[in-house]
Design a binder for these strands. Structure first.
Lengths: 401, 401
DNA sequence: CTTACTTTGTTGAACCAGTAAACGAAGTGG
DNA sequence: CCACTTCGTTTACTGGTTCAACAAAGTAAG
């Protein structure tokens, strides 16, 4: 938003105060004035307006040293919420976050979205969303927006899934179709991108790279505090970096792609023979990963060697991205997070050897705490971000406080 | 700049008008009002202030269809200028740009900066800059700033060259040292980064990747209209992507780095035997490239095969970066631009085969027109960008119209 | 040549947002 | 109980944009 007139200025300052409360925690009005550089009187006025919009509330007086104690202003998690949706191969999920980013509800339904096809899958997502929207509005909440995470190439501007190989989708106008079904136009983005948004929200790191280990490898980049979107929204396709001309054939038809050495398939091949139950695709993925985890924890040499190999390959690919993007942190999600304990050391060794910047450019390799909720949370966070960028999107409600 | 009060608003609107004039060309005040969405009265006021600061001037009346013709407002190239410096292995260079980005002066002196050492090299740069600053000020110009391009890893925030292998520099405080010598604190950045800035300025593409072929390969990324800086300023290190475990040993000590197959060394090895004059390091590089160019133009099969190979390898590496960054354009500089005619086709073939986004994400592969002036121009453009972001940095001068 | 019409650019009143300074409010410490 | 400190509000003020009216400067038509 380019500020043009005074109302834009007001918008920007409301955003400034609201964002300060999120990133720096509850403060008195005088403290907020010092934090933002705004005048005390202005800050008071902004806080009361944010209160009318149900975004902040007054808490207890703070225990100051001298002088009159200030009443703490804090985010009001009671009125605004946002909804995240996720479409994946064998499940659909929904999450509801409040303004503080806390998870109010999370629901995951196992279903074969590939078999349902785009229309059926969108029906499932719409049903999940509609229920949560109705529920939230019944409790007097205001829904900031909906974000839909889809594993594939997304035209973010139009909300169209251009290509989602695992789902078998091509040119599916998700935003338009869901608008018809739920009456709200959702944001649509790649699952790794939305996961990166979620990690940014919980960590506060404004330069980060999110890498998720699934059947393939997904990547999402946060730079300057917001998603790197590129020219047409197709960023973060990291799985098919050709790292070894003598490597394995990839599902994409080429040879030696990164995901042939760090994707789920590579892991399963390395830890067990063809008849090993962990390679039985009929079984639930999470329980198979649990088996691998237990084998590693009990010191099984084959498993440990496999994980070392994956960790090394992970570090090789990650170092390329670190050299290009110079993030402050690389966050590992998907199965990388589940087995991360055994991947981190070999990956870090490669990174410190291969990143040219001194001290790896200060980059840390860490595991995600969000588990499989990262993408849905990120979708909701993206909707919340619009509120933090422009609090006036939330209607006033003078009754409240 | 977070707008806080009305003066910040004024600043932002001055920037809005000035930037509109740069990107959309001369317009009448009424036309600018339509373009920016600002009120006619406001636009008039902004234009007169920009005039007092010597940034715009009134031109001839425009030939409108009906009604009173409007006086065209255009960038005034007469008052503000900016200076770019470049330190490289065997030369130092300086350029002066006016506000419109036109090259006023360009000077390149051959000298062995490696032998001079950091202190001597900085003396050379300071001398070049001081002469141009004095010259400009004698003509009544106001110098917006100085940008120094150095091939290496730069801590941009502090203006320190952390590591420049080709120059043999480590932890050289360029910004501080030059401030002492010329009285202005310059911006310091990697040469590829500044070249990317220059390409952005001439093309207007707000999502672009610049790749330069030198002894190594350098990369600079423009995203959202500004440089991708990363957490600590060490972005764009693309030369050492490990693309072939069975490849050649690189100067960095590892094996199969991208620059072992597309760097200058790879080109020279491929086009000629060890006794070929093009491989004589004692000769001037540009004339050796000219020889290769002539051989290719006359259809020499070995040269053509070598260039095809380089082009293919260029495309392989570029496709990785396109998949991650999704730029609207990849601009080739350095020797890639000189021989680009023979590199483009094989590189484009690889890119269209390897980029996952439909239609390569709309990405075009083009050659730079800026030759070896890209880095110095970019340094000056970076200084000019500060004026466009905040025109109030230029002092008022009520005498000038 | 005059009149109607169109567009440009300026002017002055109005409005709105943030600032500054004064002041009452609400605590601590002696 | 009083001096002191800090909080938050109030009031007058400054600065920037907008709006509406109007003069300026052109074209088109009669």
């Amino acid at each position: 938003m380019e500020p043009r007139d005074q109302t834009d200025l007001r918008r920007a300052n409301l955003a400034l105060v609201l964002t300060a409360l999120r990133t720096r925690g509850p403060h008195s009005r005088a403290g907020l004035a010092r934090l933002t550089g705004l005048n005390k009187a202005t800050t008071s006025s902004l806080v009361t307006e944010l209160g009318h919009r149900g975004l902040v509330r007054l808490g207890d007086p703070a225990p100051g040293q001298f002088g009159r104690p200030g009443a703490l202003v804090e985010l009001d998690p009671g009125r605004v919420c946002a909804i995240g949706l996720e479409a994946n191969v064998d499940y659909a999920a929904v999450a509801v976050l409040d303004l503080a980013g806390d998870l109010l509800r999370h629901h995951r339904v196992a279903c074969d979205l590939v078999a349902l096809g785009p229309t059926g899958a969108l029906d499932v997502l719409a049903k999940l969303a509609a229920r949560e929207i109705a529920e939230a509005e019944a409790r007097g909440r205001w829904v900031a927006g909906v974000g839909v995470a889809v594993p594939g190439l997304i035209d973010v501007a139009d909300g169209v899934v251009k290509l989602a190989p695992n789902l078998g989708w091509r040119d599916v106008p998700v935003a338009a179709e869901l608008t018809e079904r739920i009456g709200v136009t959702p944001g649509v983005d790649n699952d790794a991108n939305f996961s990166a948004v979620a990690e940014h929200a919980v960590s506060g790191t404004s330069e980060l790279l999110y890498l998720t280990g699934e059947i393939g490898v997904g990547g999402g980049v946060i730079s300057g505090g917001s998603l790197l979107r590129g020219a047409t929204g197709f960023t973060g396709e990291v799985g098919h970096m050709p790292l070894d001309p003598a490597g394995q054939r990839c599902g994409c038809g080429r040879v030696g792609c990164w995901e042939t050495s760090v994707g789920l398939g590579a892991l399963l091949r390395a830890v067990g023979d063809a008849d090993d139950p962990v390679r039985d695709a009929a079984l639930d993925l999470e329980s198979r990963l649990e088996v691998i985890r237990e084998r590693a924890a009990s010191g099984d040499e084959r498993t440990l060697a496999a994980l070392r190999g994956i960790g090394t390959a992970l570090g090789v690919g990650a170092s390329i991205l670190i050299n290009v993007l110079n993030p402050a942190a690389v966050v590992l999600g998907g199965y990388f997070a589940v087995l991360g304990q055994w991947l981190l050391d070999p990956a870090r060794d490669e990174i410190s050897a291969r990143v040219l910047a001194p001290d790896s450019g200060g980059c840390e390799l860490v595991l995600s705490d969000l588990g499989f909720t990262a993408a849905v949370r990120g979708g909701a966070h993206a909707a919340l971000a619009e509120v933090f960028a422009d609090p006036t999107v939330v209607p006033e409600n003078r009754n409240t406080s």
